[in-house]
Nucleic acid binder design. Structure first.
Length: 566
RNA sequence: CGGGGCGUAGCGCAGCCCGGUUAGCGCACCUGGUUUGGGACCAGGGGGCCGCAGGUUCGAAUCCUGCCGCCCCGACCA
């Protein structure tokens, strides 16, 4: 492609509303333009990169037996009502104003299941792996970070249909490895975490994560053994509080000025690990007291899994008084005003010598023995894993990092097939719901994450198969010098004929403009053709990744190019 | 949805408090000339419903009210 007629509107300055590097560089390099909040147009250069990502996705999905579909974005709402997801999705789902009964699809489990129900009738019809690359619509409350969170985005979504749970395991395994291959091929550094399956339903799910300060997820990561988990479910080998030998009777003491655990610890010189903190939640109008170590934080996702509902909230001050007899800061497991359900964190099981609120404002109890003084029998992992907690697998301190989710795989099970009547007859002639999996990758996120990981102060650094072009020929003074233009055109044709993807900057621009644009766009190899070198029968190679340059004889060019891309 | 910030030429911004010539600067763009290996220089030029609507005033980019849009933090999030 010759740049003089190619639409690549580069920008010298950062757009005011772009905060993160990938967003700034995608706009500056002329890959995208913003049309509205969370809505982006892909310009020719961006579209080429998208296509390269999608090519990889298709190859790897086809390689595991995937069959490509194209499902509509416009969906009858009826189907979504059958699975209860109109309500579950809430405002995230776009509804149309001038056409009742139609919505814009935020994902496609329902539609896939609908077609499966139509035509999959025997165990012999499975397994199936169906996928598509298609635009999703989600009415995000707050789009942000450029294309990382948009209201409209391209997703590669895949769905497996199996006639047994073992079959699902196999299908899931295939996608698990395909996903690794995809991200490896794209040149993205990632890690895989166990995740909560959230509103998707299902049994097992894993997320493919890219560590980034721009990420919206938080993960606990072990650099030694490779353990990684979304903080929603991450655990650790933190030792339990345990027992002290001395076990005196409970004693009440006045703590008039200690409202928080920190104040308590400081004023009375206590071990924070032996301060049991009480958090009271109201679950569908019923109170529950959650007991944790003082410096630990309750993990609401874990709580949700234990309670089996997400209909809970921290109790109000009035409720606290009613349930416990005290305000927040003075609540504990002993001497509650009303008998309420208590669940405690695993670390407190069997512990003694604990300090906790006395359920009387301004007083705490010490020497509490969980076994002797409470009738708590429910112990769960309730705490949020923290930096430095010992890895649950190998015990070394965990890191806690922010991350961007670029892929997510789920064992759905029969949630959708049951709801939509997608059944098959098994070997015994018995009707069974199809066992499903679902697998998603955000296409724009791959591009943005790649750039997040591969850029410098000059611009993007393309180095793998995602590069929009492989070679960037810069004609320096080509519009004034016929020999320069002639040589550039010669290289352009020869390299293209040899199968390389070549961009030729033949614009009537000064050298500085071309150098800066080339570094910004970031094509891996620049071949700089200028008058001075040409007089010596030479051109300059510049490697975008290292910024190294070398002077090369004209007749060596093809050979060196070949070596570079080998 | 709560909190904060911002809307002035294609892009980045000043002007607004304290109302008053023809709304300004840099980049980009057009013409001519000089330049030509790291975002050139000189001269000339084009481009604005100052986000929208209403109000106050002799007079509004500037003050007041309402609305819309965009960004950030939070809530939410397959």
């Amino acid at each position: 492609m010759k740049q003089s007629r190619y639409f690549i509107p580069t920008l010298k300055e950062n757009p005011a509303d772009a905060q993160i590097p990938s967003h700034q560089l995608m706009v500056r390099s002329g890959m995208v333009r913003q049309l509205g909040s969370g809505i982006f147009s892909f310009l020719p250069l961006g579209q080429i990169v998208l296509k390269k990502v999608i090519d990889i996705l298709r190859e790897e999905q086809d390689a595991i037996g995937g069959q490509e579909f194209l499902l509509p974005a416009l969906n009858p709402i009826e189907i979504w009502e059958k699975t209860g997801r109109v309500e579950a999705m809430g405002d995230v789902m776009f509804h149309l104003k001038n056409r009742e009964g139609v919505v814009l699809a935020p994902t496609h489990e329902e539609i896939i299941t609908y077609h499966a129900a139509q035509h999959i009738s025997s165990y012999k019809d499975m397994p199936q792996m169906w996928y598509q690359v298609q635009t999703k619509f989600r009415n995000e409350a707050r789009p942000k970070s450029g294309v990382l969170r948009g209201r409209q985005f391209i997703m590669k979504d895949a769905y497996s249909l199996d006639n047994s749970w073992e079959g699902l395991d196999k299908s899931y395994e295939k996608q698990f490895h395909a996903y690794k291959k995809i991200f490896d091929r794209c040149g993205i550094k990632f890690f895989v975490v166990g995740a909560s399956s959230g509103a998707m339903g299902g049994r097992q799910s894993q997320e493919y994560m890219v560590e980034s300060d721009s990420g919206e997820d938080i993960c606990a990561v072990c650099d030694v053994c490779g353990y990684a988990a979304n903080i929603e479910i991450a655990s650790s080998k933190t030792p339990p509080v345990g027992r002290k030998d001395e076990n005196p009777e409970i004693e009440k003491f006045a703590t008039p000025t200690a409202k928080t655990i920190d104040e308590l610890v400081e004023q009375y010189n206590l071990n924070v690990n032996r301060c049991a903190k009480s958090v009271v939640y109201t679950v569908k109008d019923v109170p529950i007291l959650i007991l944790m170590r003082g410096n630990d934080e309750l993990n609401e996702t874990k709580l949700e899994a234990i309670l089996g509902t997400n209909e809970f909230r921290p109790s109000t001050e009035d409720e606290l008084l009613e349930f416990t007899g005290a305000n927040g800061g003075s609540i504990g497991p002993v001497g509650l005003k009303k008998k309420i359900r208590i669940i405690a964190d695993n670390l407190l099981q069997g512990a003694n010598a604990l300090v906790s609120g006395a359920n009387e404002n301004g007083y705490h109890l010490k020497n509490i023995d969980m076994d002797r003084d409470t009738d708590v029998t429910e112990f769960y992992d309730l705490r949020t894993t923290k930096v430095g907690d010992p890895c649950p697998v190998c015990g070394v301190p965990l890191r806690v990092v922010k991350a961007i989710e670029i892929g997510h795989i789920f064992k759905l099970g029969t949630k959708y097939s049951s709801a939509l009547g997608a059944n098959f007859l098994d070997k015994d002639g018995k009707q069974q719901p199809i066992i499903m999996g679902s697998y998603g990758i955000g296409v724009e996120r791959i591009v943005a994450c790649y750039i997040e990981q591969n850029h410098d102060e000059k611009g993007i650094i393309w180095k793998g198969p995602l590069a929009p072009y492989q070679i960037h020929i810069l004609g320096i003074g080509n519009t004034k010098s016929e020999p320069v233009d002639k040589l550039c055109n010669g290289f352009y044709k020869a390299l293209k004929d040899s199968g390389y993807e070549v961009l030729y900057d033949d614009r009537d621009e000064t050298a500085g403009v071309k150098f800066n644009d080339a570094d910004l766009i970031g094509i891996p190899l620049q071949i700089i053709v200028g008058k001075k070198n040409l007089e010596n029968g030479q051109v300059e190679f510049k490697y975008r990744q290292t910024l190294d340059r070398e002077i090369v004889g004209i007749d060596e060019v093809l050979e060196i190019v070949k070596i570079f891309f080998k």
